[in-house]
Design a protein around this nucleic acid. Structure first.
Lengths: 225, 225
DNA sequence: AGCAAATTTCAGCTGGATTTCAGAAAAAGA
DNA sequence: TCTTTTTCTGAAATCCAGCTGAAATTTGCT
């Protein structure tokens, strides 16, 4: 269980880290909004603890941007400000819980656990779609258990589509999530990699999974019909 | 969005119900632990608000039993007891949030919303009209649950009309919203696609939905008799 | 640097999607 | 009923989004 602490007060980070470590969490920390946002988006944490008052962009902006970029980990705001307005704003920007400093460490732990428990319900570590299976951690892709060797782009495309199976992905959205840049509009990189992906999957007898929605984008079909 | 309130103080239930109603929730209530548990298990609520001190079995037992019976809706405990021990116990029994009375109604609302947002994360909002159903995220159209394959223009027309059911759409407005350009005036593209749409829907036994308003445009009729 | 693998660009091609068009049908008014 | 206006419809014409093979470029390694 990994936790990211975004908090500029290093003493507090120290205390938090100790408490969390004692309870079996591994902790990473960031001391500015930008740094925190970057770390949060770079690798997945089971929970993010976030201060509001930060140098640079503040905590509210961090959650908001994080959600915009499709970050899905639960976010707990830890703030000295206890006004209802602040709480409301926090939740509205996309936070999942709000605790006021000073806080009781036992309560913090159970709240963090609760958030993780909820989030874990929905997210199995293994992505799957029928006979296809994708492990984001080891980056292995299998059909019927036999390994399919995918290149980086192929894997990333498949992963993002599998994370939201049945949803239609525009090329813009895919480029944003896989390449982390703006979509050119004239380029057909996405098309090409989708073709490669299809070829490889077809070689393993897994057709028809990736549908093209003409004029819109692609989607991976999982389930009925 | 439906909420179940389990709380023995009827005045408080009244207040809660009002606040929630104002914010677009439908509310049901139970006044004992047993009754609440039964209701919670009988039909699905988007969120459950639970008091600790109840006649009969108490709130802690309610969550615990509810979880044991595989109830999955988020549970927010609302209690006058503010000790950390109580909070810890609440979370450990399976609650997802804990608020102390007296509470601020705005905070309650955002917390409930946040819980529901997390829980309902995956399923996308559906546009519907009787037996017809349209999912803008997966771009799937169904009649009575069976899939109807629509082309881009057909889907987009149906989507924009469904977003404002019972409103009349001029060809100008449809072209603007679907084609994102000016309406030619001499062209009958809209008419043609509306025909295709009708054909496909009729093939699935869904007639009469799209009406033509002579001299003006089209509208989709979606009344609840 | 030198090489191989991965990624991206490019241009031609194809077939389904879209649009146009003209005549038939329907509605409205006299 | 006849006329005019508007909509519907079938078929044909056009278009354009996406597929593909190959070449060009970049990346990563030794």
């Amino acid at each position: 269980m990994s936790v990211l602490i975004i908090e500029d007060n290093r003493d507090l980070v120290q205390v938090l880290a100790e408490v969390l470590n004692e309870n079996g969490f591994s902790v990473e920390s960031a001391h500015t909004g930008e740094e925190g946002l970057e770390k949060a988006l770079l690798s997945r944490f089971d929970c993010i603890i976030l201060d509001i008052v930060l140098p640079g962009i503040n905590g509210f902006q961090v959650v908001e941007e994080y959600r915009k970029e499709d970050g899905s980990s639960p976010v707990l705001i830890l703030s000295a400000r206890d006004s209802v307005e602040d709480k409301v704003e926090g939740f509205n920007r996309g936070a999942d819980d709000y605790m006021v400093k000073p806080f009781d460490s036992r309560e913090l732990i159970v709240r963090v656990r609760s958030l993780i428990r909820r989030a874990a319900d929905k997210q199995s570590p293994l992505l799957a779609c029928g006979r296809l299976t994708l492990d984001p951690v080891t980056r292995e892709c299998r059909v019927d258990g036999t390994f399919v060797n995918l290149r980086r782009r192929e894997f990333d495309i498949l992963e993002t589509m599998l994370r939201h199976a049945n949803q239609v992905f525009t090329r813009e959205r895919l480029v944003a999530s896989v390449w982390k840049k703006e979509y050119d509009g004239r380029s057909n990189v996405v098309d090409v990699h989708v073709k490669y992906l299809r070829d490889k999957l077809r070689a393993h007898g897994f057709d028809t999974a990736i549908e093209t929605i003409r004029g819109v984008g692609y989607k991976i079909r999982c389930s009925e019909e």
